[in-house]
Design a binder for these strands. Sequence first.
DNA 1: CTGAAAGCGCTAACAT
DNA 2: ATGTTAGCGCTTTCAG
Lengths: 347, 347
Amino acid sequence: MPLVVAAAYGGPVVSEGERRQTTIYDVAAAAGVAPSTVSRAFSRPGRVRAETAERIRAVAAELGYRANPQARALTTTRTGMLALVLADVTNPVFAEVVRGAGRACERDGYTMLLAETEESAEKERAMVDRAQGSVDAIVLTSSRMSDAAIRQIAKVEPLVVLNREVPGVPSVLVDFEPAMRRITEHLAELGHRQITYVAGPEASWADGMRWRGLRLATEHLGIRLRRVGPVAPTVAGGQTAVVDWDDHRTSAVVAYNDMVAIGIVRRLAASGVRVPEDVSVVGFDNTPVGELVTPALTTVAAPLRALGETGASNAIALAAGARSRATDPIRLPTRLIARASTGPVRG
Amino acid sequence: MPLVVAAAYGGPVVSEGERRQTTIYDVAAAAGVAPSTVSRAFSRPGRVRAETAERIRAVAAELGYRANPQARALTTTRTGMLALVLADVTNPVFAEVVRGAGRACERDGYTMLLAETEESAEKERAMVDRAQGSVDAIVLTSSRMSDAAIRQIAKVEPLVVLNREVPGVPSVLVDFEPAMRRITEHLAELGHRQITYVAGPEASWADGMRWRGLRLATEHLGIRLRRVGPVAPTVAGGQTAVVDWDDHRTSAVVAYNDMVAIGIVRRLAASGVRVPEDVSVVGFDNTPVGELVTPALTTVAAPLRALGETGASNAIALAAGARSRATDPIRLPTRLIARASTGPVRG
DNA sequence: CTGAAAGCGCTAACAT
DNA sequence: ATGTTAGCGCTTTCAG
């Protein structure tokens, strides 16, 4: 069966049906060297004479040789793949993380495997389970699993958790405390003396951190803090929170995230309460829509892309043998973005 | 070196450092059968007596056996992985596609590999190149590569293209023609007699289709059509388009997508032109933000999730040997969503 | 620096 | 229905 060689797309292509790939043996034969030398020429360039390596590369290119990743992985136990698991790519916050992780992978020649858990701890476990054998490292974003489960996985596989602190497991997270302090200061400067926090999902580690940071900061500045919720981290969730706020009105509201904040603003507007004249509203995440709604949202920009990027590159380093048992989380700095949804409190 | 067995997370776990996995040989020995029988028990359950299979499974579970995907792939040449390549997960449109493809993969027990090309045809080629050996099928979303290059890949690897038509290559796409017709009818019903189309990226296949659909529909209904652009498919892009529109004002503007539409509305508002009182604006894609901006955007909902899902499942079917050389694209239906950015033309 | 030989863990004929 | 025997394509000792 004759090979049909096509010039256009990188090397030989076999006629439909027949798919035998060119192996190191083919290259070896054509280059007049032993197969092991071909292998070395690709995986350990230093260990072969420059000339020989050159010739081998040439022949390989001509024959369209491509190393078989599976075969390689079989002996090296390294697949060059990293699994990124998260709840929902459709959430802009996670999308940024994906982008960052993708960059890190590309930089280090890794391939990224994406697993969406759709908020289910069970699914998350299943996905990790399946990915486990195929990847060199795993990055868990806002994991829903128990600390114990996560630690267990970390024991078997290089693992980094994002937006979550698990003692003993490398993690990188958004530095919430200063973020909440900045929000509080911003509000205080505008004259606000009481704040309502609209909480997000109870199970969320991030929600706990935001609440904690806010408590610390308000205490320090002598500001009254109330908490309502939890609500779903969505526009609808924010809307439902307004009735609770209405029970004990405060001049400022800090929402779990931008979506919730937008929901609050909308419901407020619907009942004739003006933002920011009557009440100031603060979001979190600096989601793109925050800039497009009216009024534009005051919010906190988290370095989401960097989160994904450092998470992935740390995981890759771990896979490469970097036993940095320094278990202190890496904390990424945030930035307050003051826009039109906050304003001075009215006498 | 003694093994440390942990009960908590699915089976044995070795002490740090030592990572030897349990193989079919271990299971075979423990179950008192030949290795090949263990293999069969997992890959070809029918070919082994129920009792035996049961015993093998039990032993395997106890030993924490997990098939090595690389080894399996080496003989079967099937990896159980699918590559989804697209420009940008951060774009809500693509995020939905990812979600859909992820679902299809999960349903069929596939693992999804994600590659972001960041709009570069070169990068796209490189990513495909790298994924090629590791996956059973590839899904290309809004590819920037040439038809020839795509066809070449399709010859070597099961491939489905999304949002693009490449003769001879299976594709699934949003059915633009009826979508543009619906937009035109909607506008015509409101009394509009001239429309400006604000074009997206020139290289975009989707842009070409939208323009074509609009031309057909306006011709049919006797409506004047003008075209401005191309502009970047972003809010900023939309803003720049307004000056061109201003040269020959029309009572209605159809934008390449929601982002462009939002940009247009904002710039219009900034110069005192009211939407929809003075001019009606229509977007495309039904991005979540379209509902949150003021005025809420009239747009077209494309079945993005379904796009990803049918794309992936077709690719998987192809990988499984379904030689459906029916090269007619699958066209997915759209839905007009009339909101507040369109209104009757004013006498 | 290069060659020869022995697997990695699994599946796929071929036997029985 | 199960056991035996060869490899899949690559890396890796171990020799030379």
